[in-house]
């Protein structure tokens, strides 16, 4: 388990044993016969100003984790301790909705789909200005000024304020979404796949923008994505999730070069690299399919696909433990495995 870190070192968010189960209802009376363990005992923390990348394949629980933190989904159990701007520590997991409202200024979300997450009947002024209005900025001129400032900030021309979303490209819409998220000076921004719907040439622009904004406002990002290359570009630390659990968490460079969990190794091996000279065609591929979170395997959830699995992996559930300073992994064989990451030797790699 990750030790509880005192708030003095700039921790803004601490997630402890977060669990979210979605009940499965079957039969005549729709009785609950089981649960999809979407998030299964997840713990991590976030320091002010850092970016934590949350990666994993679809259904691994990364999106549900982020939704729990923003209380878009009510967690089943666990704590989500958030340190507010005025220094209080609140447990977001159990806060009544009424008391969540002031917190929503400090925690904002950027969505994946820039096409459906903006109301097409609202002008930019209304979209970006809405959170301002909701939180009490009723003076229209004042609001207009702030919206113009925000649009400039994300690289859009304030003159476009009266236009509607359909007049903008995907990248521009994602900028609008970012401007909206920033309107209330948030401290924590949860970005769920913010660039995966964008064209390659525009992705880079948006990633750069997010990094610039972070620097300027000391924003803290929880960056949820399936694309490891994007995550590497923006994250200080990375957490890898598999079937609802964090299996590895480490500094970005370390996780990519020296992974300690076989799943992380497999993920890294599977990422296609834009260099035909690498000849990665003969690399080892992960077999089979992601386990069903409604009926996960015994022991380590990864063992049916793990090339290194032993008897202990089939029976005992491994615990996420610190294997070197700041590097957590949940694998029975963490001490005796030599895993391969991305090795960079003069532009060449394994």
């Amino acid at each position: 388990m990750i030790d509880s870190i005192p708030a003095m070192d700039g921790t803004i968010l601490e997630v402890r044993n977060l669990t979210k189960h979605f009940p499965i209802k079957r039969g005549l009376l729709k009785r609950t016969v089981g649960a999809v363990k979407a998030v299964d005992d997840v713990s991590f923390n976030l320091k002010q100003g850092e970016t934590l990348g949350l990666v994993g394949e679809s259904g691994c629980g990364k999106t549900t984790t982020s939704r729990c933190i923003l209380r878009a989904v009510d967690p089943t159990s666990g704590e989500i301790m958030f340190r507010t701007a005025d220094g209080h520590e609140v447990n977001v997991a159990t806060l009544p909705n009424r008391e969540m409202r002031p917190l929503r200024r400090e925690m904002q979300m950027i969505f994946q789909d820039p096409f459906s997450s903006l109301n097409s009947r609202m002008s930019l002024l209304d979209i970006v200005g809405e959170p301002l209005l909701v939180h009490g900025m009723t003076n229209r001129d004042e609001r207009q000024e702030r919206v113009a400032e925000l649009l400039r900030l994300v690289g859009l021309r304030p003159e476009y304020m009266q236009r509607y979303p359909h007049a903008f490209s995907g990248g521009e819409r994602q900028r609008i979404g970012i401007a909206r998220a920033l309107a209330l000076h948030p401290r924590l921004v949860v970005a769920d796949e913010p660039v995966s719907a964008l064209d390659v040439s525009v992705q880079a622009q948006v990633i750069n923008l997010l990094m610039d904004l972070q620097e300027e406002f000391e924003l803290t990002y929880l960056f949820v994505a399936h694309d490891l290359s994007v995550v590497k570009q923006i994250s200080d630390r990375v957490a890898v999730m598999y079937v609802g659990k964090i299996v590895e968490l480490a500094d970005t460079a370390e996780l990519f070069t020296k992974p300690r969990h076989p799943y992380s190794e497999a993920l890294l091996a599977a990422v296609p690299v834009a260099d035909p000279r690498l000849h990665r065609k003969d690399r080892k591929l992960l077999e089979g399919e992601v386990a069903n979170p409604a009926n996960p395997p015994s022991g380590c959830y990864f063992h049916p696909r793990c090339p290194y699995a032993q008897d202990v992996c089939r029976t005992e559930t491994p615990v996420l433990s610190e294997v070197s300073p700041g590097h957590f992994a949940s694998c029975h064989r963490v001490q005796d495995l030599e895993l391969t990451g991305i090795v960079q030797v003069d532009g060449e790699s394994t």
């Binding site: 990633i207 990519f256 890294l268």
Partner: peptide, 8 residues
Amino acid sequence: SIPSVLAS
């Protein structure tokens, strides 16, 4: 412009 896992 493409992010790469090989990036430093």
